[in-house]
Each structure stands twice: as structure tokens, then as C-alpha cells.
Amino acid sequence: MGWLAAGEGYEIALVDGKVAARSTSGRSAGKQLKTLPKALRDHPEVERLRRFADWLDRHAASCVAQVDAWMVSALPVPSAVLGEVWADEAWQAALRDLVVVGAVGEGPDATGFLRDVSEDGELRVVNLDGETVRMSAETVTFPHPVLLPDLAELRDFAVELGVAQKVEQIYRPTWDKPSDPNQRSSATSEFAGGRYPSRFALAARAESLGYRVSGGYAVHRIRSGGRMVEARVWIGEPHREDDSVTGGLSWSSGGRHLPLDKVDAVSWSEGMRMAAALYAGRTGER
């Protein structure tokens, strides 16, 4: 975005997401000012740019949220859609450097770090051999890290490439579901007992992390394996005024409790991630 006239002797523009000004006359003409002049603070053009900056922030956040949902659910995304949105800087930032997987049977180059997408949906990716290759597939997926068999190798390679993902994927904390039923039972209470000064503080922590609070639970909705799963952590009865502690973790689907052996790998990992994040914000020990 270029510089726009605002008031007499000034121009304004968005610089790093904030409204900046520069003088158009005198010895400092053309130089960006450190702060907005008082005469511009309530100027209509400044207010318009501020509102536009707020919209850009919301748009960027919605792009990240959508791509995160694609990853957690492993939904196939049409390559043509990626080609349409790639020109948008917010979409590009959310998608760039994610591990993308092409259709089954496309060969060894069907997995890599996404670097570019053409208008017609052809992807350019860096594969594990360090080669930039083209991927033509009708649909692609951005797998949840718990589903990536080469996760350790991808993490090491990402460090070499200097990968910085806007959507947390390969560095996302993961929990593998134990095979022993007794271990699974103990895992669901691993992060219980995290003490907060109030139920309000615990609920605020959950909401700040992007989780929903419903009744006495912090809830994470996960679309996985073609169904909607809810991971739930007990946070206490609403309107409590005394301290509160995190409770156990459970899963449900379609309003019914899910036995632990029916919880899929992604829902397990995401539920444990929520429970661990809530426990990490505690102010007292068990």
C-alpha cells in the first residue's frame, strides 16, 4: 500500500500493521516520522487506515484458523483452491512451509515443505532430499504431526531450512496414545490437579488458548476420521468464587462418551495438548 494524503503537509500509510506518517514539505520531506503528529491523530483517513489494519489482523487470524482446521482434520484440500488464495499475503503466510502430502501413488516427491503455488494449483515443495519439485494433485492434505511417520526427520530438516510455520504443525506438541489400557487411564488424569486462584481465571486461560468453555468444561472440538470428537477437561462449576483445579480428560462424540479404545490418534493428541496447556498455567501445585 502506498502513501495517502492526509491533512496539509502529511501523508500516511500502514507500516508493519500500524499507521505511520511522513511530512511532504520542509527539510524532513519524505522521511517517516517516529510518531503520528497531533494534527493527524483524529483525522478521518487515519481512522480509516486503523480500521483497515484491524480488518487485516482479523483476516490473517481467520486464515491461520482455517489452515489449522484443515491440518487437524486432515481434510483433503483442492489444489485449485490453494492456487486461488495464494496471491493473498495472509493466506500465503498461513500456508507457507507447511508439510503437504499429495495423493497416494504420486511417488516419493509427494511429501514436502510447501514453498509456492501457481494460479492453476501446481505446488512447489522442498522434499526430504532437499530438492525443489513440482506437485500436481487434485487434492492435498496438511497432516497432523502425529500422523507423519518421518516427523523426527522433518523436524531436523526444518531446522536446516530455517522453517518458521505460522500454523503450528511439525513443532506442535504431540502425545502418542499408549497401547496399554492401564497407561491410557492414567494418562487422562496426568494433567489433573493444576490449581488456579479462581474458576474464572481457569476459564479465561482456556479461552485465551482458543478453547471453548461450556458448563463446567473446557472443550476442544476435533473433526477427525469423518466424525466430530469433543475433548473435555473439567474446570469446575460456573460462578464459583473459590479456587479451582483442572480435572480429568475425556472424549465424546455425538453427545456420547467415547471409550478410550475408540479415541483416534489425532483426537488423543489434541486432547492431551489442551489438558497440558491448561495445567501449564497453574499457580499452585497439586
Rank of each mutant, 00 (worst) to 15 (best):
V81C: 06
V15D: 12
G17C: 09
R240Q: 14
R227W: 07
E237Q: 12
I222A: 00
Q66F: 11
M71V: 09
G215V: 08
G193D: 09
W3G: 04
S253L: 03
R48N: 11
R199M: 08
A74E: 10
R115I: 10
A192F: 04
L75V: 14
A158K: 00
P143C: 14
R115M: 10
V15M: 10
Q92D: 11
G284M: 07
R51L: 14
G210T: 10
F52R: 15
V159A: 13
R48K: 15
V64N: 03
V140C: 05
S25C: 11
A69E: 06
G105Q: 05
R48A: 11
W234M: 04
L56V: 10
S208K: 15
R184V: 03
D176K: 12
H144Q: 05
S269H: 00
F142P: 01
S73R: 12
D120F: 04
P145F: 07
Y211F: 14
A137R: 00
G130F: 06
A265K: 09
R48I: 06
Q66Y: 10
P197T: 12
P145Y: 09
A280Q: 12
R134G: 07
P143S: 13
A13T: 08
L4P: 02
F191L: 08
P238R: 14
E285G: 08
A93G: 05
D180M: 10
G102K: 02
A203P: 01
Q66D: 13
L4N: 06
W55E: 15
T111R: 08
W3I: 03
D120H: 10
R115T: 08
V213I: 06
A13D: 09
L40K: 13
A192C: 11
L151R: 12
T132P: 01
E119A: 12
D261H: 12
D156T: 13
A60R: 11
S208F: 04
A93W: 03
L4K: 09
H43Y: 04
S118C: 06
V67E: 02
V19M: 04
S62Q: 14
A231V: 01
R199S: 09
A158S: 10
A6N: 01
T35H: 15
L36G: 00
A94T: 07
P78R: 11
D243Y: 13
Q32M: 13
V19R: 01
K34L: 13
W70D: 06
S186R: 14
R155K: 12
D120N: 15
R286S: 07
D176N: 13
P149F: 05
